[in-house]
Amino acid sequence: MEPIIVVMLTACVITTLSAILSKSVGKEKEMNKWSGEIKRCSDLSSDAEKVGRRDIYTAFQKQGNEALHKYFAALYCEAVIEIFPHVLALGVLQKLYTQDVLHFGFSIWLFGPGIGFFGVYFVSALVFHFAVLKKLKKKLPILGTAK
């Protein structure tokens, strides 16, 4: 099979798989919980500042900072779950294709005479995500926010 087809197909399959994985083990609930806590600390610290209580302002800023850490940890988990399959797939493709997989036949500024596996994978995954998966998300609960 043509290398470009293999790369494009891999991008589409992995994008679908990572969306399913992220949906099933994602941490949206936890993120919402910490987001609420950050908002609470933020509101209260600005109230404290308004009434001139710098000590309480600092206390809430510190609490907000801790909530922010927890929020980032949950966010990081979700992000890494969604992205590691792509990086692993890129690792396999990096082993298979060392040359350009798409040849223009002429030179384009910034790109040169062709694009490697990474560029083709990146564009294919992005296009597939926005053109196909985003639309399917509304219909298929396994992929995301079905109503």
Binding site: K27, C77, V80, I81, I83, F84, V87, L88
Partner: peptide, 16 residues
Amino acid sequence: FMYIGFFLAGVAGGSY
């Protein structure tokens, strides 16, 4: 990518 891909797979598990 292969090294960092395996590493991130572990990070995903550990974060979870």
